[in-house]
Computed example of a mutant assay.
Amino acid sequence: MHEMSIAEGIVQLLEDHARSQHFSRVKQIWLSIGELAGIELSALRFSLDVVTRDTLADGAIIHIDTVPGSGWCLACSQSVAIHARFDACPLCGKHQVQVSSGDEMRVAELEVD
């Protein structure tokens, strides 16, 4: 379950920013996660609940915004919506779609004290 290591990385990021920006508590976290990022959201939520205990983010409310997947079809030169990395183009049926968005993951915003 790589979501646990992702959650640990998020907590490390929060701790690093707390030191550099002088805050002591994280009240809310907004994450932006792409549909194609390969992250199981329920597993990430569970992992964050576990790894934030007794940290500056203990009890923080976690918001997750999902970014839809999209790609560029090399065969028909169109931008298309995709829901899995190796989906065929919904317009022409070819499997020549390059992911253009929806594979990212970032901490978009924090509410801190």
Rank of each mutant, 00 (worst) to 15 (best):
A88M: 12
I82K: 04
V67A: 02
D113Y: 05
S32E: 14
P68A: 05
A18M: 09
L91Q: 04
A43C: 04
M1A: 15
G9W: 10
S32F: 04
C73N: 05
V26H: 01
Q98L: 13
S70A: 15
L44A: 08
A57M: 12
A18S: 08
C76H: 03
Q12R: 10
D58G: 06
D87E: 01
I6G: 03
V107Q: 08
I82G: 04
R45T: 07
D103R: 05
G69D: 03
V80Y: 07
S70W: 02
F46V: 05
A18I: 04
A43G: 13
R19H: 06
F23Y: 08
I82W: 03
H2C: 02
I39L: 12
H95C: 12
E8G: 12
A60S: 06
I29E: 00
D16A: 13
V26N: 09
V51E: 08
P90N: 02
S32Y: 10
D54C: 05
V97Q: 00
A43H: 06
R19V: 11
A57Y: 04
I10C: 00
T55R: 01
A60N: 02
S20T: 10
I64L: 04
W30F: 02
L56Y: 07
H83Y: 00
S47Y: 03
R106L: 03
V107R: 15
P68M: 09
G34Q: 10
I61L: 09
T66K: 10
C92W: 02
M1K: 14
W72A: 02
L31M: 00
S77A: 15
H2G: 09
L13Y: 11
E35T: 09
G9A: 10
S32W: 10
E109W: 11
K94A: 15
E104C: 10
S79R: 11
D65A: 10
G59N: 09
S24N: 15
Q21P: 14
M105H: 02
E15D: 11
I61A: 05
F23D: 03
V97T: 06
C92Q: 02
L48G: 00
D113G: 07
L74P: 05
D65Y: 06
V99A: 06
S42M: 06
F46E: 03
R45E: 03
V112S: 01
D16T: 15
D65H: 14
W72S: 11
S20A: 08
R106M: 13
H22E: 14
L31V: 03
S32G: 10
S42T: 15
V11W: 08
H17W: 12
C92A: 02
E109G: 12
V99E: 06
D103W: 03
K94L: 10
A43W: 01
G71Q: 00
